[in-house]
Design a protein around this nucleic acid. Structure first.
Lengths: 212, 212
DNA sequence: CATAGGAATGACCACCCGGTCACTTGTCCG
DNA sequence: CGGACAAGTGACCGGGTGGTCATTCCTATG
């Protein structure tokens, strides 16, 4: 029952989701569903809370494991894990994405600010940890950098589930390509965050005045 | 008539938009509207095409003006101009944002891929131009960087119109703060793109092995 | 077995939707 | 003025919506 409702909301958003379709697929009476959840909004609220609880564990696992690694490696791991999570829970991800843009999504303000605050804090802590390890430059504002990272990751996850948005980058294609593209994004971000000289050979001319 | 329909779609998205409300506000008969546009989808397609045409001019003006400036300045100008445009056309921006996440938005694939391709090309060209000027490091992949920039800008524009998403960054508050935050975002991006030594003094300790 | 009480049911409600079309109205020309 | 023809109208249609509630069914207990 929860699974089927979850799928309906994720596939159609809130307003386009149909209680009739849900009970039709489940082959139960409409009255039963309303007896449990009271209203469409009640059903949705219940589902969302469950989903939020479900997403917390993997996020924490990423943050608390392998704390010794330098920042770029950790960021890549975060990107990879998030990508895997979004692919494994496309419906949940779809709901979240919809809520971001749909002003009249019920409970939007409450639910969103809760999730967003947690996400940005997660990245800010990751960055500050990197700064303490000297793998992130100290003059970088953690909040600003967290914003950029979150925006990039969000777009990447959206792109990998929606070929229209991929725009030739390859996130929506096979796993190997996706992995490579995600790593490239993480690296491009790290370029700006790292204490200056990046490991890459910088193959072209040496026009820059102080490279390596 | 067009203005009122535009507003309706932007405020409610496609499916939640109501023809009845539009004709009600305009105080005209429903039949008239259908005589002109044939269907709801026809009306929307017409509106969208008009909006796309409208957006092209300012974008081109940004790209083709001040070509001599170094990349970071140009990027800041692009951010500022885009921010102003989104604030001036919140409805249009709302439609675009909705279309990004709503799978069943009619004509989504056609319209979106058209817009996205143009946007990403715009940024790629901006970066390549920066590389030719030596104000962007040569080993940066233009497509990847364009992706990151576009993602960040998109999130920033969303945040400035939706306080819930601002997450304490200050994009949704007064113009001065917003301007400063946009500049900070652009700078954070440029850190990674610039040929290495950034102008900023890097105030803290000199633990990094080769800073400045 | 009888029965009490909660759980399940689905016909039904009022409402709203996009879309139609027979009809009225307005306009312009001979 | 009269007629032709386009423009404008709004009652109406079939269908879908979230939600209700009198009724039936099931089960658990005495």
């Amino acid at each position: 029952m929860l699974d089927e409702s979850y799928r309906e909301f994720a596939e159609h958003g809130y307003h386009q989701a149909s209680i009739n379709r849900i009970v039709g697929r489940l082959d139960i009476a409409k009255g039963s569903l309303f007896q449990y959840f009271g209203s469409k909004e009640g059903l949705f609220a219940h589902l969302f809370q469950r989903a939020v609880d479900e997403i917390k564990a993997p996020l924490r696992a990423i943050r608390d494991g392998q704390t010794g690694e330098p920042f770029p490696q950790r960021l890549k791991r975060v990107f990879a894990a998030s990508s895997a999570f979004a692919l494994a829970h496309p419906f949940l991800w779809g709901i979240y994405r919809r809520m971001l843009t749909q002003e009249d999504f019920p409970l939007r303000a409450t639910l969103l600010s809760q999730v967003r605050a947690e996400t940005l804090t997660f990245f800010r802590e990751l960055i500050e940890l990197g700064q303490n390890q000297d793998s992130v430059r100290a003059d970088l504002d953690p909040a600003t950098a967290a914003f950029v990272i979150e925006a990039t990751l969000d777009r990447a996850l959206t792109a990998q589930l929606s070929p229209v948005l991929d725009a030739g980058l390859g996130l929506a294609s096979d796993p190997q390509t996706r992995q490579a593209r995600l790593d490239a994004l993480a690296e491009a971000l790290c370029l700006g965050f790292s204490v200056c000289p990046t490991v890459h050979p910088a193959p072209s001319t040496a026009k820059g005045d102080a490279n390596a």
